[in-house]
Computed example of a mutant assay.
Amino acid sequence: MKKSRFSVLFGTVLMTAAITAACGESSDGGTADTGEGSGGGGSASQDLSLLTGGTGGTYYPLGGQIANIISDQTDANITPQTSGASAENMETLRAGEAELAFSQTDIAAYAIEGKEMFEGDPIDNIQAIASLYPETVQLVTTAKSGIKSVEDLEGKTVSVGAPGSGAYINAMQVLEIHGMSDKDIKAQNLSFDESTDGIQSGNIDAAFITAGTPTGAVEALSAQNDVVIIPIADDKIQELVEKYPYYAEDTVPSGTYKIKEDVKTVAVKAMLVASKDVDEDLVYEMTKALYENTDQITHAKGEFITPETALEGLGDMELHPGAAKYFEEAGVSK
């Protein structure tokens, strides 16, 4: 009986050692291939963070859909995160605390060139993946405010966007073209949700919101209020575009937020950026997955996400090599 017990014990020890060794290979060196990645590489999935914006804007819901597409089609596991949007996203990428981010094209350009809120302190570890859709500069108020023009903002309480946000820079530039500044208004630094809540409660009169239309926070406001989008006059649009060439004329169509007529304004572009440290092959696969599965995007801005327009508004920004490889294959160039 002693010999039998020893044999059983020895066999158990050998089996345990074998299992432990196998597990060790998988965890410390990644030599075990799970084959679970759906991107065809068969490698273990890579966890990446995608910085978006506030829940009341466009970045967050659209970012969730893009993250799902990429996670389903590649070996990347993308987690979207709420944030203070463009400028904050650039700083977070600088710090190495995320790998991917949404941004306005103008803010990404400022970050790379060391201008505006990045004055003298350029960010050198970010590259463009693609531009996505127009981000409309919307000056939002309600009929009861009596505000009908940008000039009517004088003396009013106006949200100019979260501190350091793209909306803030846009607001300052629109005011500048009209011979005004934040000194001519009672400026409030609020997020999109806070802005529309403030208009709803009567604490503020109007808000600058730069986002794809329709914007969730403004749609929520329009459910109980007669929303008004203040137009920018043609001559002012021309002045703005001439001085800041990353702007383009845009229109908020009638029916949006229940408005009865088209409203002329301007827009910049929303874009995706990546840290230079993200693997070239992985960025190639992510870019390909996005542009070959846009039919899975149900958000209204999905219709603008096409390879043909993916390099518009990027100017001199450097493309990530992985994205550049995809667009070269697709026959798309600046």
Score class of each variant (00 low, 15 high):
Val273Lys: 01
Asp235Val: 04
Gly35Trp: 05
Gln127Glu: 13
Val268Glu: 13
Val227Tyr: 01
Asp262Cys: 10
Tyr326Thr: 01
Ile230Val: 05
Glu194Asp: 06
Pro214Thr: 09
Gln81Arg: 11
Ala98Tyr: 00
Pro307Ile: 13
Val252Asp: 01
Ser43Tyr: 15
Thr105Ala: 14
Lys115His: 09
Val137Pro: 08
Leu100Val: 09
Tyr284Arg: 00
Lys269Ser: 14
Tyr110Arg: 07
Pro307Phe: 11
Glu239Asn: 11
Ser43Gln: 14
Met172Gln: 12
Val263Ile: 15
Ala18Thr: 09
Tyr257Trp: 06
Ser45Lys: 14
Asp72Glu: 13
Val278Gly: 09
Ile169Cys: 10
Ile259Val: 04
Gly57Gln: 04
Phe118Lys: 07
Gly322Lys: 03
Leu221Cys: 02
Arg5Ile: 06
Ser201Phe: 00
Ser222Val: 00
Gly198Lys: 11
Ala67Val: 06
Val278Arg: 04
Ile259Leu: 06
Leu240Gln: 05
Pro134Ile: 00
Ala130Tyr: 04
Ala310Thr: 01
Ser43Arg: 15
Lys260Val: 02
Val8Gly: 12
Ser181Thr: 14
Ile70Ser: 05
Gly302Cys: 12
Gly155Glu: 02
Gly37Lys: 07
Lys2Ser: 09
Thr309Ser: 04
Lys3Thr: 12
Glu97Val: 11
Thr196Phe: 06
Gly179Tyr: 02
Gln127Arg: 13
Tyr247Pro: 04
Ala101Phe: 01
Val252Thr: 02
Asn293Arg: 03
Thr256Leu: 05
Val218Asp: 00
Lys115Gly: 07
Gly96Phe: 09
Asn77Pro: 00
Val137Asp: 09
Lys325Leu: 02
Leu240Lys: 00
Ser165Leu: 10
Ala223Leu: 13
Lys183Met: 04
Ile70Leu: 10
Ser26Glu: 14
Thr256Lys: 03
Thr298Arg: 05
Lys236Gly: 11
Asp295Lys: 04
Gly212Asp: 10
Leu9Gly: 08
Asp277Met: 10
Ala171Gly: 12
Asp121Thr: 15
Ala108Ser: 12
Gly120Phe: 02
Asp184Asn: 15
Ser275Arg: 01
Asp182Thr: 15
Met15Gly: 02
Val278Thr: 03
Pro231Ala: 15
Lys258Ile: 04
Thr20His: 10
Asn225Tyr: 12
Thr141Arg: 05
Glu135Arg: 10
Lys334Tyr: 12
Val158Gln: 02
Leu290Gln: 09
Val13Lys: 01
Gly120Ser: 14
Gly198Met: 07
Asp197Cys: 02
Gly216Trp: 05
Asp316Arg: 05
Ser131Met: 00
Glu135Leu: 13
Thr196Met: 02
Gly161Leu: 01
Glu239Ile: 06
Leu290Cys: 03
Ala18Pro: 06
Glu151Val: 00
Lys183Ile: 13
Ala167Glu: 04
Val158Met: 07
